[in-house]
């Protein structure tokens, strides 16, 4: 279950070594924007050693490498791929071709390192207008792609508009990305909420993202992690209701009834599908039936 993804600058040991203590489901060790050009080498080596030796406990490890239009991305992949992190995040992904370029190079590294084919997965970062328009092609370009991630800051710049707290400027991109990801059968993650000191704003922003269909949300601050986790976890009432739905449908099937109602409302296929998603999420979080 991945609700929250916390960005950690790849050049700061102090932040990296405590990364697995901040409560996020995943950490993103960043070699890109958080690292200045003259520290790219240092961050790459530091992140490589940290993944190898730290044994990050109970969190997924994602590495954001540098973009294809930089001189760093191959070296980044050379250092990181052999450690097989849970996901690699390529930034500024604009087309299916970008994914295929990465796919081919990662394939070579897998082979050279005796790794299983296609074991390294991708979460392309979509942060350009072109990327948004190509989102479905990106999501379905390779079986390595297991999720899409929206980057609101760079996207706003590319759209020639200001990034606001309300986020109207990225609304289309959010909806488009959810639709593209779901169409391709992959997960989808929302852009960070960047006002670190706004504890209410993060809750609103995360709730809105959840309402659109996002799987989870990234954060640039540990302060936002618990709010994100809470919003993207099913509530007790939702979980209980989901079990009721499944019980009702099971009982109806046993009795050979086709049409089922619960508390006076029809249970149709989408309701059952949502109930199953809720139960899967609850069980992944240890909030399943036995935890009641």
């Amino acid at each position: 279950m991945r609700r929250s993804m916390l960005f950690l600058p790849g050049s700061t040991p102090n932040k990296i070594i405590n990364g697995d203590s901040m409560g996020s489901d995943a950490i993103i060790l960043d070699l890109e924007d958080a690292v200045s050009p003259d520290e790219k080498d240092a961050a790459r080596i530091l992140v490589r050693n940290a993944i190898r030796d730290m044994g990050f406990d109970g969190v997924e490890v994602i590495v954001r490498v540098n973009a294809l239009d930089t001189p760093y991305w191959k070296q980044d992949l050379d250092a990181i791929v052999p450690l097989c992190p849970d996901l690699i995040m390529p930034p500024k992904t604009t087309s299916a071709q970008d994914v295929l370029t990465l796919d081919a190079y990662i394939g070579e590294l897998e082979k050279a390192n005796g790794m299983e084919e296609n074991s390294v997965k991708l979460i392309p970062l979509i942060e350009t207008a072109l990327g948004v328009e190509n989102a479905y092609q990106i999501a379905s370009a390779s079986q390595r792609v297991s999720a899409l991630f929206l980057g609101g800051e760079d996207l706003s710049a590319d759209l020639h508009c200001r990034r606001t707290k309300e986020g109207n400027e990225i609304d289309y991109a959010r909806k488009r990305l959810v639709c593209a990801a779901r169409a391709a059968g992959v997960e989808v993650y929302d852009t960070p909420f960047t006002d670190v000191n706004d504890d209410e704003g993060i809750v609103c922003d995360a709730k809105y993202a959840k309402s659109l269909g996002f799987t989870g949300k990234a954060s640039i601050s540990p302060r936002h992690v618990s709010a994100i986790n809470e919003v993207f976890s099913p509530t007790r009432a939702e979980i209980d209701h989901a079990y009721e739905v499944i019980e009702a449908i099971t009982a109806a099937k046993a009795q050979g009834r086709g049409v089922v109602a619960l508390h006076g409302k029809m249970i149709d296929a989408p309701v059952v599908a949502r109930a199953e998603q809720t139960i899967a999420a609850a069980e992944a979080l240890g909030l399943g039936r036995e935890a009641r």
Partner: peptide, 9 residues
């Protein structure tokens, strides 16, 4: 300090 806040929580 995020570690401190985490522990405090």
């Amino acid at each position: 300090d995020p570690v401190g806040l985490m522990m405090a929580q």
